[in-house]
Protein backbone atom coordinates (compact mmCIF):
# COMPACT_ATOMS: atom_id res chain seq x y z
CA UNK A 1 0.00 0.00 0.00
CA UNK A 2 2.77 2.43 0.96
CA UNK A 3 4.69 1.44 -2.10
CA UNK A 4 1.69 2.08 -4.28
CA UNK A 5 1.09 5.57 -2.86
CA UNK A 6 4.74 6.44 -3.43
CA UNK A 7 4.42 5.22 -6.94
CA UNK A 8 1.31 7.35 -7.48
CA UNK A 9 3.01 10.41 -6.05
CA UNK A 10 5.94 9.93 -8.36
CA UNK A 11 3.66 9.54 -11.36
CA UNK A 12 1.80 12.72 -10.38
CA UNK A 13 5.03 14.68 -10.07
CA UNK A 14 6.14 13.49 -13.45
CA UNK A 15 2.92 14.60 -15.07
CA UNK A 16 2.79 17.95 -13.29
CA UNK A 17 6.41 18.95 -13.79
CA UNK A 18 7.08 21.27 -16.75
CA UNK A 19 7.94 19.41 -19.87
CA UNK A 20 11.61 19.81 -20.48
CA UNK A 21 13.33 19.03 -23.69
CA UNK A 22 10.22 19.31 -25.81
CA UNK A 23 11.14 19.34 -29.43
CA UNK A 24 9.07 21.38 -31.87
CA UNK A 25 9.40 19.89 -35.29
CA UNK A 26 6.19 20.41 -37.19
CA UNK A 27 5.64 23.91 -38.57
CA UNK A 28 2.03 24.82 -39.23
CA UNK A 29 2.43 26.70 -42.46
CA UNK A 30 -1.18 27.89 -42.54
CA UNK A 31 -0.64 29.78 -39.27
CA UNK A 32 2.80 31.06 -40.25
CA UNK A 33 3.78 34.02 -42.39
CA UNK A 34 6.73 35.57 -44.21
CA UNK A 35 6.31 39.30 -44.77
CA UNK A 36 8.72 41.63 -46.52
CA UNK A 37 8.85 45.38 -46.13
CA UNK A 38 10.42 47.88 -48.52
CA UNK A 39 10.29 51.52 -49.55
CA UNK A 40 9.22 52.82 -52.93
CA UNK A 41 9.78 56.56 -53.40
CA UNK A 42 10.09 56.50 -49.61
CA UNK A 43 6.58 55.05 -49.30
CA UNK A 44 6.64 52.11 -46.85
CA UNK A 45 5.04 49.00 -48.37
CA UNK A 46 4.74 45.35 -47.42
CA UNK A 47 4.15 42.10 -49.23
CA UNK A 48 4.13 38.39 -48.47
CA UNK A 49 5.20 35.01 -49.75
CA UNK A 50 2.26 32.69 -49.29
CA UNK A 51 3.90 29.36 -50.14
CA UNK A 52 6.83 27.95 -48.23
CA UNK A 53 7.93 24.67 -46.69
CA UNK A 54 9.78 24.53 -43.40
CA UNK A 55 11.66 21.61 -41.95
CA UNK A 56 12.80 22.33 -38.44
CA UNK A 57 13.46 20.94 -35.04
CA UNK A 58 13.91 23.26 -32.12
CA UNK A 59 14.23 22.49 -28.45
CA UNK A 60 14.42 25.72 -26.42
CA UNK A 61 16.74 24.02 -23.94
CA UNK A 62 19.14 22.84 -26.63
CA UNK A 63 19.32 25.61 -29.24
CA UNK A 64 22.70 24.43 -30.48
CA UNK A 65 21.10 21.22 -31.69
CA UNK A 66 18.27 23.05 -33.47
CA UNK A 67 18.04 23.20 -37.23
CA UNK A 68 15.85 25.06 -39.70
CA UNK A 69 15.49 24.82 -43.42
CA UNK A 70 13.01 27.05 -45.23
CA UNK A 71 12.13 26.71 -48.90
CA UNK A 72 10.13 29.62 -50.30
CA UNK A 73 8.19 29.38 -53.54
CA UNK A 74 9.21 32.77 -54.93
CA UNK A 75 6.38 32.89 -57.45
CA UNK A 76 3.92 32.93 -54.53
CA UNK A 77 4.85 36.58 -53.97
CA UNK A 78 2.07 39.06 -53.24
CA UNK A 79 3.25 42.66 -53.40
CA UNK A 80 -0.26 44.04 -52.98
CA UNK A 81 -0.16 45.44 -56.52
CA UNK A 82 -1.12 43.24 -59.47
CA UNK A 83 1.19 45.03 -61.94
CA UNK A 84 4.13 44.44 -59.61
CA UNK A 85 3.10 40.82 -59.01
CA UNK A 86 3.29 40.22 -62.76
CA UNK A 87 6.73 41.78 -62.87
CA UNK A 88 8.27 39.79 -59.98
CA UNK A 89 8.80 36.37 -61.67
CA UNK A 90 10.61 38.08 -64.58
CA UNK A 91 14.34 37.89 -65.28
CA UNK A 92 15.10 41.29 -63.75
CA UNK A 93 13.48 40.39 -60.41
CA UNK A 94 13.41 36.77 -59.17
CA UNK A 95 13.77 34.96 -62.49
CA UNK A 96 11.62 32.14 -61.10
CA UNK A 97 11.95 30.12 -64.33
CA UNK A 98 15.56 29.47 -63.44
CA UNK A 99 15.42 30.02 -59.66
CA UNK A 100 11.98 28.98 -58.43
CA UNK A 101 12.82 28.76 -54.73
CA UNK A 102 14.60 30.83 -52.16
CA UNK A 103 16.19 28.92 -49.33
CA UNK A 104 17.38 29.51 -45.81
CA UNK A 105 19.46 26.83 -44.07
CA UNK A 106 20.55 27.46 -40.50
CA UNK A 107 24.13 26.78 -39.51
CA UNK A 108 24.07 27.90 -35.89
CA UNK A 109 21.27 28.78 -33.48
CA UNK A 110 22.09 30.22 -30.10
CA UNK A 111 20.23 31.52 -27.07
CA UNK A 112 20.59 35.21 -26.22
CA UNK A 113 18.63 34.91 -22.98
CA UNK A 114 15.13 36.01 -21.99
CA UNK A 115 13.37 34.00 -24.67
CA UNK A 116 15.49 35.54 -27.40
CA UNK A 117 17.56 33.56 -29.85
CA UNK A 118 19.61 34.12 -32.94
CA UNK A 119 19.77 32.02 -36.07
CA UNK A 120 22.76 32.23 -38.34
CA UNK A 121 22.60 30.61 -41.69
CA UNK A 122 22.82 30.83 -45.41
CA UNK A 123 20.20 32.52 -47.53
CA UNK A 124 20.08 31.62 -51.21
CA UNK A 125 18.08 33.69 -53.67
CA UNK A 126 18.52 33.75 -57.43
CA UNK A 127 21.61 31.55 -57.23
CA UNK A 128 23.42 33.78 -54.73
CA UNK A 129 24.18 32.48 -51.25
CA UNK A 130 25.03 34.85 -48.41
CA UNK A 131 25.30 34.63 -44.64
CA UNK A 132 22.44 36.15 -42.70
CA UNK A 133 21.69 36.49 -39.00
CA UNK A 134 18.12 36.57 -37.80
CA UNK A 135 17.28 37.31 -34.18
CA UNK A 136 13.98 35.82 -33.05
CA UNK A 137 11.88 35.22 -29.98
CA UNK A 138 10.40 31.94 -28.85
CA UNK A 139 7.36 31.48 -26.68
CA UNK A 140 5.05 28.62 -25.94
CA UNK A 141 1.31 28.92 -26.35
CA UNK A 142 -0.43 25.73 -25.27
CA UNK A 143 1.09 22.91 -27.27
CA UNK A 144 2.49 25.32 -29.87
CA UNK A 145 5.74 27.16 -30.17
CA UNK A 146 5.62 30.66 -31.64
CA UNK A 147 8.69 32.09 -33.32
CA UNK A 148 8.81 35.78 -34.28
CA UNK A 149 11.77 37.50 -35.81
CA UNK A 150 13.07 39.80 -38.49
CA UNK A 151 16.22 40.76 -40.29
CA UNK A 152 17.26 43.05 -43.11
CA UNK A 153 18.89 42.32 -46.40
CA UNK A 154 19.95 44.25 -49.46
CA UNK A 155 18.05 43.18 -52.54
CA UNK A 156 20.94 44.05 -54.89
CA UNK A 157 23.21 41.59 -53.04
CA UNK A 158 20.94 38.95 -54.57
CA UNK A 159 20.51 40.76 -57.91
CA UNK A 160 16.80 41.14 -57.21
CA UNK A 161 15.73 44.09 -59.36
CA UNK A 162 18.37 44.37 -62.06
CA UNK A 163 18.80 46.68 -65.02
CA UNK A 164 16.50 49.70 -64.80
CA UNK A 165 15.24 48.44 -61.42
CA UNK A 166 18.73 48.68 -59.90
CA UNK A 167 17.82 52.35 -59.28
CA UNK A 168 17.64 52.26 -55.48
CA UNK A 169 16.39 55.86 -55.26
CA UNK A 170 13.05 54.57 -56.53
CA UNK A 171 12.87 51.10 -54.97
CA UNK A 172 15.09 51.02 -51.89
CA UNK A 173 17.88 48.47 -51.60
CA UNK A 174 17.03 47.57 -48.03
CA UNK A 175 14.31 44.96 -47.53
CA UNK A 176 13.15 43.77 -44.14
CA UNK A 177 11.98 40.21 -43.69
CA UNK A 178 9.62 39.53 -40.81
CA UNK A 179 8.62 35.98 -40.00
CA UNK A 180 6.05 34.41 -37.73
CA UNK A 181 6.18 30.62 -37.42
CA UNK A 182 3.90 28.37 -35.42
CA UNK A 183 5.22 24.89 -34.69
CA UNK A 184 4.02 21.90 -32.74
CA UNK A 185 5.54 18.55 -31.78
CA UNK A 186 5.01 15.59 -34.02
CA UNK A 187 3.13 12.92 -32.12
Amino acid sequence: MRALSHYLLLALLLVASPVHAQEFNEVQTAKSSIVFGYRQMNVPLTGTFSKFVIQAHFDPGKPAAAQVRIDIDLSSIDTGNSDADEEMPGKLWFNTQQFPTGQFVSSNIKALGGGRYEAQGKLTIKGKTLDVTAPFTFRQEGANAIFDGSFKLKRLDYAVGEGLWADIATVANEVSITFHFVASSKK
Binding site: M41, V43, D83, A84, E87, L164, T170, V171
Partner: peptide
Protein backbone atom coordinates in the same frame (compact mmCIF):
# COMPACT_ATOMS: atom_id res chain seq x y z
CA UNK B 1 2.79 53.66 -68.71
CA UNK B 2 3.77 50.11 -67.94
CA UNK B 3 5.43 49.54 -64.59
CA UNK B 4 8.92 51.07 -64.44
CA UNK B 5 10.93 53.22 -62.03
CA UNK B 6 9.91 56.21 -64.18
CA UNK B 7 6.24 55.39 -63.66
CA UNK B 8 6.71 55.09 -59.89
CA UNK B 9 8.47 58.47 -59.86
CA UNK B 10 5.83 60.18 -61.99
CA UNK B 11 2.98 58.76 -59.89
CA UNK B 12 4.68 60.16 -56.78
Amino acid sequence: LKLSPLKLQLVS
